[in-house]
Design a binder for these strands. Structure first.
Lengths: 234, 234
DNA sequence: GGAGACTACTTGTCTAGACAAGAATCGGCA
DNA sequence: TGCCGATTCTTGTCTAGACAAGTAGTCTCC
């Protein structure tokens, strides 16, 4: 017999009633003082429940005004992108990687701009194909800022994925990415063993650590062999 | 000149030092009592900072043991999927929709199973193409559980998107979705005005409200005209 | 009528203290 | 040696009160 914590009781009540439509989107909800009176708990307890619901995006709060049911027009969901090696092995397949390119290059204009380095500055460039069992599932074309990961080219990428290594070198970072469908380049098609016009899921990710760009990567997945999964839970 | 709230100071300090690698993943971090002494604030203030970092996934806390830097192997990011109408208008385009199908059908085996209804039970089926200005950007093939949205077929989908309507009828829900690249069906290609082999971003979404399935949707986007954007910020 | 002061209500935050519960360590006892 | 209880440290949570700051309405005075 476990007693539910008071803040959880308040939170659960509000969540349930929101789900029932007691307060339609945009409607004013009970104030903290009213909830304090209703549940017989202290204001800090009510405040915690409300703050957590706010973080979860279920309510909006405005100082001086009140608490409102959130308009749930935007559907914000978490998409977990795991390290590819972990993901493949977690599904019971064997992962291996083939390194087709790992060298120092001078940055093209486009790469220099996105990596925040000077034109023609040295950058690291790797091109790696990842396999699940014997099937190629990802072609990873990546540029790395040498200032952030000087030892990048010394890594054995058949054993450690670039993502894994970069996470160790620069532990905290921000990433922006876009996901689209497209066709592979001729080289990508050849490396993945697919047709030039076969649809691919293309993820372009740019990673920044403490406002210094670390890496930009183009990840091309054959459409028939790779899925992104997501879940949304209020 | 705005003073930073004490809990934010503590949080920011911990975040910065985590980013610097002061506590590598798995390492024991300062206890609440130590942070209280260091910052001269009350324990509740420190506790709030730590709790928020925990929610953000940067640290792990274990009662009786201590606080630990989180192993940042998994990369969890939020992907926001907004209502298509809002997204198109927010970009300065005009949205309109053409309804190609809106009727009651008997559920096929596959639909019945995924919607949680009996085989041959009545379900609602809509097929709608969404345009940004005059360009088709999404083909929305959707089945709806009539028990959750009895009035679904009476909605004017040229004015209200199905997502928007369903959000009003059933305000809180959970969704699972998969994102993949593929080719459109012959009908989808015709409706979107694209080639039969053009790559498309296909989102399949299943929505559940209080453990009752509401709707399953297949959203097909021409690869050249639609992107998903995401961001990850620790 | 209009401007400004005042008031009431809201959320945002902090404090000092308290008790509970989980976990490790240490001492004593069989 | 091995087991058990006491101690201590940790996080988890709650309380009652306080002040700050944003907002809206009202009231007064010009």
């Amino acid at each position: 017999m476990v007693a539910i914590a008071p803040f959880a009781r308040v939170k659960h009540f509000l969540k349930r009633e929101l789900g029932r439509g007691r307060w339609p989107p945009g409607r004013l909800m009970p104030s903290e003082a009213q909830l304090v009176a209703r549940f017989g708990v202290s204001r800090m307890t009510v405040n915690r429940a409300l703050r957590e619901l706010q973080v979860e995006g279920l309510i909006e709060r405005r100082q001086g005004i009140g608490t409102f049911a959130a308009p749930l027009h935007r559907v914000s969901s978490t998409l977990t992108i795991r390290d590819l090696h972990d993901e493949i092995t977690a599904r019971g397949h064997a992962h291996h990687a083939v390194v087709h390119l790992a060298r120092r290059e001078s940055a093209s204009a486009a790469v220099a701009e996105r990596l925040g380095v000077a034109r023609d500055a040295a950058v690291f460039h790797t091109l790696i194909v990842h396999f699940a069992d014997a099937v190629p599932v990802q072609c990873e074309d990546r540029f790395v800022n040498p200032a952030c990961a000087p030892g990048y080219l010394d890594v054995d990428f058949t054993r450690i994925t670039p993502t894994h290594y970069l996470l160790e070198v620069a532990p905290l970072w921000e990433a922006q990415y876009s996901i689209e469908a497209g066709v592979p380049t001729a080289r990508e098609a050849r490396l993945l063993g697919i047709g030039r016009r076969d649809p691919c899921l293309i993820v372009v990710r740019r990673t920044v650590s403490r406002s210094v760009p670390i890496t930009i990567a183009r990840l091309v997945h054959p459409g028939t062999r790779y899925l992104l999964h997501g879940e949304f839970k209020p």
